[in-house]
């Protein structure tokens, strides 16, 4: 190898020529596309969680700012929250089964698992919408106090994410129906699974900080 070529391959002359184990350094090539795509989506999810942490911080700061209005003890129905929690947890499990089915290339099991996931997610959204509607109907909407503004923002933002996840779920089922388990479709299924599981993690923080602690524990 000429001196010029050696300079190009090893510009800092650290003597690592051909011994680097890092991907992207010639021989091994870059990481597989599945790893690159999922890692990028993982970074997005973490940025989403950072955004939620800002909403959590504002809720924590405003939790006592009820402006003479009702607080969490009067407003929260823990039985409702327990049902929502069960729905989301089991839907996370069935979403995992859907990714196992996709890994096994089983179209019927994939449909079944995704259908159960969708129904559980829809029940969750229905319960949350009815809770919000009840609060607004009693005059305890987001305008009532700083506490309620923060409550509707953080819980509503999570609900919005779940709703988007339900739409994404339907498009994934449609894509598998139309195109089958192609590699690009499998990557999207992987990202959808990550998204759905991450929403359940955020809900764990939500029911603990907002509902259980807010209901006077």
């Amino acid at each position: 190898m000429s001196a010029a070529a050696a300079d190009f391959a090893d510009p800092n002359r650290v003597g690592q020529l051909g011994r680097s184990d890092a991907p992207g350094h010639g021989e091994g090539g870059p990481a597989p596309e599945r790893v690159v795509v999922a890692f990028g989506f993982w970074i997005f999810l973490l940025s989403d969680i950072v955004m939620f942490s800002a909403f959590f911080a504002s809720y924590a700061v405003l939790a006592g700012a009820t402006a003479g209005g009702p607080g969490g003890v009067e407003l929260f129905d823990l039985r409702n929250v327990a049902i929502e929690t069960a729905c989301l947890l089991v839907s996370s499990f069935t979403c995992g089964l859907a990714s196992v089915a996709a890994g096994a290339r089983s179209v019927p099991w994939f449909y079944v698992a995704m259908a159960v996931t969708f129904v559980l997610g829809a029940v969750f959204i229905g319960l949350e919408v009815s809770e919000f509607a009840g609060l607004v109907a009693r005059g305890d909407g987001p305008q009532r106090s700083g506490f309620l503004t923060a409550f509707f923002t953080v819980v509503g933002c999570h609900g919005l994410h779940v709703s988007c996840g339900l739409l994404w779920l339907l498009t994934m089922v449609a894509q598998v129906f139309a195109k089958g388990f192609r590699l690009d479709i499998l990557r999207r299924i992987l990202c959808f699974g990550l998204f759905w599981h991450a929403l359940d993690i955020i809900w764990v923080a939500l029911f603990t900080v907002v509902y259980l602690l807010g209901a006077g524990a």
């Binding site: 091994g28 890692f39 990714s99 992987l190």
Partner: peptide, 12 residues
């Protein structure tokens, strides 16, 4: 091959 060892998050 030796460089394909990273796993994607979510992959078992």
């Amino acid at each position: 091959h030796p460089h394909g060892r990273d796993t994607a998050p979510g992959d078992q």
